[in-house]
Amino acid sequence: MDHIKQQIKYVMATVLNVEVADIPENCSYGTFERWDSLGHMNLVVALEEEFEIRFDDEEVSDMLNLFLIYNFVISKLETN
């Protein structure tokens, strides 16, 4: 699996306090108990630190599943 995806899953696992292996490809907001509105903020903070990027207002509210998070991260890294 690609490296960026793996890194995202690692961040999600730490922030949401689950195992990397337990994160399904189709997971989204609400899949885990801790991925609620506060958990989402934590996730944004942790991802921005991990990849040294900054999401725009809209992206923060739109990135509600693993697939979208991955796309936003990739496009941010490309524009940097």
Binding site: V11, T14, V15, N17, V45, A46, E49, E50
Partner: peptide, 12 residues
């Protein structure tokens, strides 16, 4: 210290 590091270290 990164936020994920804070979370991990705090749990430990």
């Amino acid at each position: 210290m990164k936020y994920t590091e804070i979370l991990q270290r705090n749990r430990e």
